[in-house]
Design a protein around this nucleic acid. Sequence first.
DNA 1: TTCCAAAATTAGGCTTGCCTAACTTCGTCG
DNA 2: CGACGAAGTTAGGCAAGCCTAATTTTGGAA
Lengths: 217, 217
Amino acid sequence: MASASVEDYLKAIYLLQTARTPATTRGLADGLGVRMASVTGMVKQLHAAGYVRHERYRGVQLTAKGRRLALRVLRRHRIIELFLSKVLGLPWDEVHEDAEALEHAASDRVIERLNTLLGSPAFDPHGAPIPHGDGTISPLNGRLLSDCEVGHRGRILCVSDKDPAFLRYLAGIGIRIGLRFRLVDKAPFDGPLAIHAGRKKIVLGHPAATRVLVSPP
Amino acid sequence: MASASVEDYLKAIYLLQTARTPATTRGLADGLGVRMASVTGMVKQLHAAGYVRHERYRGVQLTAKGRRLALRVLRRHRIIELFLSKVLGLPWDEVHEDAEALEHAASDRVIERLNTLLGSPAFDPHGAPIPHGDGTISPLNGRLLSDCEVGHRGRILCVSDKDPAFLRYLAGIGIRIGLRFRLVDKAPFDGPLAIHAGRKKIVLGHPAATRVLVSPP
DNA sequence: TTCCAAAATTAGGCTTGCCTAACTTCGTCG
DNA sequence: CGACGAAGTTAGGCAAGCCTAATTTTGGAA
């Protein structure tokens, strides 16, 4: 059985790769809240266990085995988030932390029962797809808000679950949204954005905006 | 925050004390599946943290602080067991292990929501009382089957949750039960017992029987 | 092209909680 | 009483995962 740490690292690597950012030592250290030296150490272990490929001074890449485990962890995480939100009635913007702890303690049996109880849902409370039991996952075909042109309209498909205040700010999944202008009109992918979300006008700092997927036009 | 290990030790000490057996190094080592030396080491830590009193070569005793934490852990454990059994539909004799893992990962908030979902239940699936949120617990006024005289009749009030096969064997909480005879008629509290439980005739080895509480006549 | 800051790695250390092996204490039985 | 086996403790070690400090590599800017 993989340790909770190993599971956390694989999940973090998967999430970075999925965001089309290479899984660097720096990125993992920031994402996991540990020092870079700790990441280097754990990466060696993950490599030895066959979970990742690693080229010194380059990032890491999940092997098929690593990806499989990462998706299993992500499945647990997202099913638990949905359970906490839908069944226990916890606010959708506050379930991440609890899920983070429970995902390492819940057995496959418990997870599959929760999945049944929830009706084999396709998405978690933040719009992220729930990996299937067979180790596959359906892609989201939205665009990053930060990649969109000014004037783009759509609906919020998916947001990061890491920051409760940010989640409350965006109001919800499925909300109509429009990109009004970029407050800093420099490079296309830099600086804050102004949007309409529902009836509110919102200004998003870039790091937040990169974590918003909107539906295609 | 106390570690999962600390919580497990305190829970084990509490359970031993409640069974009116002194919490010895041996008893804790057996109950927790570790070596005696490990128990001695951890007991030092528990003492330093103010959870237990300890006299060398005698057992340990919970302080008020230790008892409070033990009851919090036990509350988590029993609420989770009931949830797994009643809401997820896991067999009542198989929920112990999953609860053991989840009790260290579930936040107070999650536990209180589960408690509400379950209707603030008084007993777990094995008939054990669920400690209250305020750190108190209602006593069970039953007798240990192994303490009863031949001929005693009553209902199963509570059984240990540690051994699934044993649980299935006993059929359930509330079942009528009668002590027929002791297979070894030596000292009153020794050797296997023969009982009627429901329609079945059952032979209990002593260690199992000591974990059965029956209602008074 | 060189240089420098950021990224990455190595070396070495700390904590937790477990282990084995060796020793001490306890309590029971002859 | 005395001895012996079980219970308990101490000493020393190990693995996981984190840390800091020192060193190496990289890649972009002057």
